[in-house]
Every structure is written in C-alpha cells, then in structure tokens.
Amino acid sequence: MPEQLLFAMEVTLNGLMAGVLYALVALGFVLIFKASGIFNYAQGVMALFAALTLVGIMDGQIPFAHIINAIFGTELHHFGWHVPALLAIILTAGVMVVFAWLVQKFIFSHLVNQEPIILFMATIGLAYFLEGVGDLMWGSDIKKLDVGLPQGINDWIDITTFEVFGYGFFIDNLDISATIVAIILVAALIIFSQYTKQGRALRAVADDHQAALSVGISLNFIWVLVWSIAGFVALVAGIMWGAKSGVQFSLSLIALKALPVLMLGGFTSIPGAIVGGLIIGVGEKLFEFLIGPMVGGATENWFAYVLALLFLVFRPQGLFGEKIIERV
C-alpha cells in the first residue's frame, strides 16, 4: 500500500479520536440549549472549573488558601491527604450539582421569560465569574491531572498495523479511553432520557415548556438537573483535555473547538454533537495533511469553521438540528 495512503489512514483514525474529544465538549452545550434554549457560553469554563476542583480535591488542596492566609496570616495550603481519583470524581460531580443549583437559584430563576440574548449575556457573566472563583479557590498554576488513564502510543495497534501494512499506526491510549468514556456517556444519557421519569420530564421540557408546566413538571428542578448533567459532562471533558495539557486556565478555550461541531451537528441533537465532532475531527486533520503543506499549515482552527459554515449554507439547523418553522 502506498505510504501516503497509510499516512492518510492514520490521520483519519486520529481525526476520529480528536472528534470524540470535541464532541465531549459540544455535548454540554447541546444539553443545556435543548432543555432551556440557553446557549451556555460558560461551558468551557465549567470544564476548567470542574477539572480544577477535581485536582484540588485529589491533592487535598485547601480552597481559597491564599485569601485565608492573607486575612489570617496563616500558612495553610494542603489538608495533607490524597483522595483516590474515583472518590474525587464523585465529590467533584457533587460540587457541580451544587453549582447547578446556585446558577438556577441566583441567576436563571430571575431571568424567566427573558429574551435568549439576555440569557446568553448572563452566561457570559457567569463564565468570567466562574473563572475568577476558580482562580481564587485553586490558584493559577498548571496542575498535573492523573486519574490513572493510560497515555501514549497504543503498542497493540502499532504492532498489529505494522504486521499488516508494514507501517505502525499511532493511536493515543488517552484518545481510546476518551472514546470509550464518550460511548458510555452517550449511552447513559440516552437511557436516562428514554427510560427514566426525570429523563422523560426533561424531554417534555425540551419539547414545550408551557405544556410541561401544565402537566406539573417543575421547570426549576429540570433546569437544575440539566445544568448538573452538563456540569458532569464538563467534568468528563475537563478530565480528558486536562490529562493532555495539565489543568490550566487555557482549558476554557476548548469551547472554541465545540462551536463548529455545534454549527454542523445542530444545537439540539446529542447524536448531532457526536457526528459533528467526528466530521470536524476527520475533516480538519485530513485537510491539514493533504492541503496544509501547500498553504503553510496551521489550517485546523479556521478549516473547522469553514466546514461548519458550508454546512450552514445548505442546512442552517445543522445536520441533526430541528428545523424551526414559524407560522404567521
């Protein structure tokens, strides 16, 4: 097989894996938009905050230590314990539930019936607030995140493909883990929304707020629920991205990778987020491989948006989004 074709196959596989990571971020946006019509600008910062909290809990870091020390003249930094990863993830998920409740209680319950742009602006404010709180709680230094996920080249794939093609493919173990986690996450979300009472209530709210209210569904509860789920998805995305780069404040910029995925897959579709992520991942990687060298490289950022724009021209609601028909 020609070497270039093998390289292209390797790039495609890695594009699929990268697409899964993009989809993980996009999922959080979709969940909140679908249930409440809010485009949550803070989703990337939620991933950052969740990852910071996870590392902080695992390392036994005292939250707000700098402020406490400055006020009381103490020298407190750590509790002196190390929390196992699984327990820390559960505790962090709990923090994200509390965060969801606070967001609903103090922000969105006061903005019922406001224009979408007002809600969007509120999430911008939330993003900056949360970033500041994260900084005060856990500090700005870059933290190593190790929840036990394997990293580095997968030897089995490398050796097997070498035996078959004479060229060993590179696939990162972390990407394989992310794919497995994403599959489990999406399956759990589907089971939850299809087979549980709360899930059906969530779908009812997503379909029609007024109708859901009329049958006794509590909008407050559903929105806390959906922000909690989005918080958990943000935690998963934060773990995967944080394991790659360390947990640091640029983690919030992963939201930029989710936007073209949403434009392509649609803002209201969970399968759309997955398929959109895969298309963007493969598209940008193949474009960089095939065309990048001719145009100086570094095409991935803009190509993802161009690809999404092309889809928008022909299908404004995205691949899986609901077509909005307004009758007058």
């Binding site: 390289f7 390797e10 790039v11 890695n14 594009g15 894996m17 990268a18 990571l21 590179f170 990162d172 991205w241 790659k244 780069s245 640029s250 983690l251 910029l253 992963i254 990778k257 940008e284 990687k285 960089e288 491989f289 990048g292 100086g296 490289g297 570094a298 991935e300 950022n301």
Partner: peptide
C-alpha cells in the same frame, strides 16, 4: 521542516503525526 501550531495549541495531533511520519 516548518510545523506551525495555531493558538492556543491545545490540539496538536496533526503536527506530531507529521513529525512521526
């Protein structure tokens, strides 16, 4: 060999595959 990475550089799979190849 020039290998540019766009800001912020959180995703560099293409660049490092190129280096591997």
């Amino acid at each position: 060999m020039l290998v540019p990475v766009d800001h912020p550089g959180q995703e560099q799979k293409s660049q490092w595959l190129q280096i591997r190849q």
